[in-house]
Design a binder for these strands. Structure first.
Lengths: 338, 338
DNA sequence: TGCGCGCGCCCGGCTGGGCAGAGTGCTGAA
DNA sequence: TTCAGCACTCTGCCCAGCCGGGCGCGCGCA
């Protein structure tokens, strides 16, 4: 695409993201292209519309970027915006105050992200493909109830209540836990499963089965923790003035199961992913853009961090700030051993 | 108040909660008072308006209950509605699937409550005045780093990385953990603190200090664990058609600090509390009603459970279902030892 | 071929008047 | 005390008309 068309498309996107009203040739001429006439701009706009990058809400209204227009913008035209000092300071300060557990940390991260992007945010807890057992503990709750505590790689704690047939005292359980630690320490779920299948360890087979199940469940992420925040920010956007639009987004955000699947599907190999409007598989997110990246304390433990807003969002700012939050959160989590 | 006025007020509230349009004398006459003329009803309505229980959006519109009208209704006129079998079944089933940790349980409770009341729900984690230590574990991470795992009453896991001066092996740490369990098991934070202050136990003083700090943080933190759900339900109500109304509610719900204070202030001695519209201290909740009760696994561990909706809410249904969820959750939590 | 200029056109949004409907308040009679 | 009738008032809705922004197109020029 010629340089001038690109500039005009960039100007349209920029103008529309701030004003939210269709942008006309005159506005562009007076604010961006003083040495071009509005008629020239009009013909360029018409061609951009032919290419599918711009659309008109109705004849003789200004132009609005289409989903492909935004796509072209983020792929080729977007210049990465530096994060202002006060914003990075704010991010650092917020994350510094985050509690040292996964849940609290993830919530704080989502909160911070929503605040700095002024959009809605989602965050899933970091989890690895292969969870390694670091430590096992068994605590007697009731005579026939035992709490299994699994410490996984990344200092992730998982807990599960087990019903056992025979009553076991705490000392008995502690002895068993020591044996389990010796056998399972450092093992990933498939190794634990082998132990389970061979069952030559003299360990309670049922217990091992439960541990395998807990690891599986953890790995599937079906139980994985997803939080969201900042829905109130969306309400400030004219796109969400009619409540139906927001309702659809909320259906996605509040339905955790659905959100988990969505995040897993969306996050691919790439480091930063932008999904715009109709590119979203789910019909509820038409008109919304989702910007996603990964974060986590280590390379093997990654969660998803994302921003959800109208397609008319300040992409370059969002990308930069999302990156800053992801980086800050990753560092902080590594530091805290979360 | 005479009997007939009461019936008419009750009818107006009932009619308005379902239809959401101001109710006129003819609608009342045809649906509730066939043996009265609309003129008679009109004069009664006028008197109810004089008493401050009803208002007109404008002259020659139907009547709408005022906040005091709702107040009178819930105080004197409301008949408690039985919870349908399928709803109680749904509640039981949902709570049965709840995970065995506090966070997960609270989230499930909020979700269930939102589903059965078709309004927004809030839930704070049950917390006592004193957190009790149930189990302590120490895991060696690095030569000079130890992970302290605290299992507190309510199966709440806390973890913290400790830096220690002298390298300790896992067996050494396990032995220490056994000693700690024997000493601290079942103790609340002030008892731990006494142990800490007397320091006559031969235990590492620094370690005890960390445990005390973790308990303190927990006591503060668990109080602030507040979740909400069901905002999407509010969007179905015409009251929230203009997004500004919902925005105000979301400011309250998403600002956890604020919500914590709100719940603490609102929950008084009474078992079930209803706060209607202008009775709310916070200006953001004008036009909203909040129904609150307490729940928890024991008398010492209580959290707050609440429903937030428009003042035009089905109070008797909400109260009954809130009560059912609170009861079910309390039982389930006691059962799971959460 | 690219650009600038100006004219005519088109369409959505706003405004103001008229109309129907719903609901009230009042009055007088049973 | 109840009730029928009547006048009044206010809103919501519809429609016509105006307005203005923005475009498309044709023409002239380098």
């Amino acid at each position: 695409m010629e340089n001038r068309k690109q500039s005009i498309l960039r100007a349209v996107v920029k103008e529309f993201t701030t004003s939210a009203v269709p942008v006309g040739s005159q506005a562009l001429q007076s604010r961006y292209f003083v040495n071009l006439s509005s008629a020239t701009i009009r013909s360029e706009l018409a061609e951009l519309a032919d290419l599918g990058y711009l659309a008109q809400p109705h004849t003789s209204a200004g132009r609005v970027p289409t989903d492909s227009g935004y796509r072209y913008f983020v792929d080729f035209l977007m210049d990465v915006e530096a994060v202002p000092d006060n914003v990075s300071l704010f991010i650092r300060e917020e994350l510094r105050q985050a509690p040292a557990d996964v849940q609290g940390m993830v919530e704080k991260v989502a909160m911070t992200l929503a605040a700095v992007t002024q959009n809605a945010s989602v965050a899933s807890a970091p989890h690895g493909t292969q969870a390694r057992v670091k430590h096992v503990d068994l605590v007697s709750l009731e005579p026939t109830e035992v709490l299994l505590i699994l410490l996984l790689e990344g200092n992730l704690l998982r807990q599960q209540v087990l019903k056992v047939a025979d009553a076991a005292t705490q000392p008995e359980l502690s002895t068993l836990a020591v044996r389990l630690n010796a056998t399972l320490g450092g093992k990933a779920s498939d190794e634990v499963r082998r132990s389970y299948e061979s069952a030559a360890l003299g360990l309670d087979k049922e217990l091992l089965g439960t541990i395998v199940a807990a690891l599986d469940q953890y790995e599937k992420g079906s139980e994985s923790l997803v939080v969201h925040d900042g829905v109130r920010n969306l309400l400030r956007q004219p796109e969400f003035a009619e409540s139906i639009r927001l309702q659809q987004v909320l259906e996605v955000l509040e339905e955790t199961r659905y959100l988990t699947v969505l995040l897993r599907e969306l996050i691919g190999e790439s480091d930063m992913q932008i999904v715009i409007g109709s590119e979203n598989a789910s019909s509820q997110l038409q008109g919304c853009a989702v910007v996603l990246t990964t974060y986590g304390p280590s390379n093997r433990l990654k969660g998803v961090l994302g921003v959800i807003g109208p397609t008319r969002m300040a992409y370059s700012q969002t990308v930069a700030r999302l990156q800053a939050v992801a980086l800050g959160a990753s560092e902080r989590m590594a530091e805290l051993g979360v």
